[in-house]
Amino acid sequence: MDNFTIGIISYLMGSIPFGFILTKIFLKKDIRDIGSGNIGATNALRTGNKLIGFATLILDISKAIIPVIYTKIHFPELIFIASLCAFLGHVFPIWLKFKGGKGVATYVGILFSINILFGLIFAISWVITFVSTKYSSLSSLIGSLSIPVYLLITGNANNITFFIIMFVLIFFTHRENIKRLKNKEESKTNIY
């Protein structure tokens, strides 16, 4: 029963579409009609309102932190179930006919909740890649790959399967970006 309850609550928290909600309330627009049509923070920046973009980022991170930290404290054996369900909630939100974001900000919240070091490794990898390329999608892919690579290098293979699964899921959500990167058609992101 705990598995099911934690999974459902984490999924529902993860599925709150903050990018969609903020653009509807403050810009009277549907974020799905803007830029890539994605509900995440990178596309929220494309609304031209950086405050909405950064607010979406913080809220998408927070909606993973809340259920994962709660689970870590009260049901530590279920932390990976909570993490996966929060991520899946963002990518496949019940409120938007299961068409959501790419899950990167939510994954950042998961990483910091599981182990602050993992969150820092992701963030450093993301920043280095982004400063070098200005591609948010490539930065997210490199950041996601950095965790299983770190675990392999340090010989700390405990739970590495979870982080490989997460990388594969993020790879999947970025499949269109990967095609555009290969064809040199991916648009660069301006976060300043």
Rank of each mutant, 00 (worst) to 15 (best):
S187I: 08
K188E: 10
C85P: 03
E186A: 08
T133E: 08
V104M: 06
T47Q: 00
I21A: 11
L59S: 04
N49L: 08
V127C: 07
I178S: 11
I116V: 14
V108S: 04
V68C: 11
V131N: 09
A82N: 14
A86V: 07
A157T: 07
L111M: 14
F98R: 12
M13E: 01
F118G: 02
K28M: 07
T161Q: 12
F122V: 10
K184Y: 05
V91T: 04
L88I: 01
I124H: 06
G89D: 11
I69Q: 13
L78A: 09
E186H: 13
I69F: 04
P148M: 05
N115V: 03
A41Y: 04
L120R: 11
I73A: 07
L12Y: 06
F20C: 14
S137G: 07
A123T: 13
I8F: 14
T161K: 13
L45N: 02
S125P: 02
V104K: 04
H74E: 15
S83E: 13
R175T: 15
T189Y: 05
I191A: 02
N183I: 00
N49S: 09
G40P: 13
S62L: 15
P67R: 09
I79P: 10
F118S: 01
Y70S: 14
P67D: 08
F171M: 15
I25G: 13
H90C: 15
A82F: 12
F163V: 01
I6L: 00
L84G: 05
D30K: 15
M166W: 10
I79Q: 00
L117P: 06
L141S: 00
T71H: 05
G155R: 07
L151H: 04
I21V: 14
F54E: 04
K24I: 10
K63S: 07
G89V: 05
I124F: 14
G119Q: 00
W126P: 05
T5G: 09
I52H: 02
N115H: 14
L88H: 06
A86F: 00
I81K: 04
A44W: 03
G101H: 15
D33Y: 01
I31P: 08
G100V: 13
F122Y: 15
L141V: 06
I61C: 12
Y150H: 02
F172K: 15
S36N: 12
I81D: 02
N183Y: 12
I39R: 06
S139D: 05
I9E: 04
Y135Q: 02
S83C: 07
F54I: 13
N177T: 09
G103K: 06
R46C: 06
S139E: 02
I8P: 09
I9V: 01
T23E: 11
L45W: 12
C85V: 06
G35V: 07
I25C: 11
F26C: 00
